[in-house]
């Protein structure tokens, strides 16, 4: 999967679990907790969506890697490359 495609998909997943954020306002490098006040439930919703959409398993210890959109991108790329 192309990086661009992953990026587009991640953005859609994020706005899916957080329909109350403005997609245009997302700063990909910024922590979602700082940026959008993400709580542990939001983080779990995002992890679930990423896990299901890309068919990858995400251990709890890996949750911090999904803290920002950019982090999530790197994580997904690594996981897909390792397959």
């Amino acid at each position: 999967m192309e990086p661009k495609e992953i990026q587009t998909k991640l953005l859609a997943l994020l706005t899916g679990v957080a329909p109350d954020i403005d997609p245009a306002s997302i700063e990909p490098s910024k922590n979602l907790r700082d940026q959008f006040d993400f709580d542990s439930m939001d983080a779990l919703h995002f992890a679930t969506a990423v896990s299901e959409a890309f068919a990858i398993d995400i251990a709890e210890a890996d949750y911090p890697r999904l803290a920002s959109l950019e982090g999530a991108q790197r994580f997904v790329e690594e996981r897909l490359a390792a397959r």
């Binding site: 542990s40 439930m41 779990l44 992890a47 679930t48 896990s51 299901e52 398993d57 251990a59 709890e60």
Partner: peptide, 17 residues
């Protein structure tokens, strides 16, 4: 919680709250 969540799919895991 860690032991409970480890074998589960992300969507079935519990949170502290």
């Amino acid at each position: 919680l860690i032991g409970h969540n480890a074998p589960l799919a992300v969507k079935d895991r519990l949170i502290e709250a």
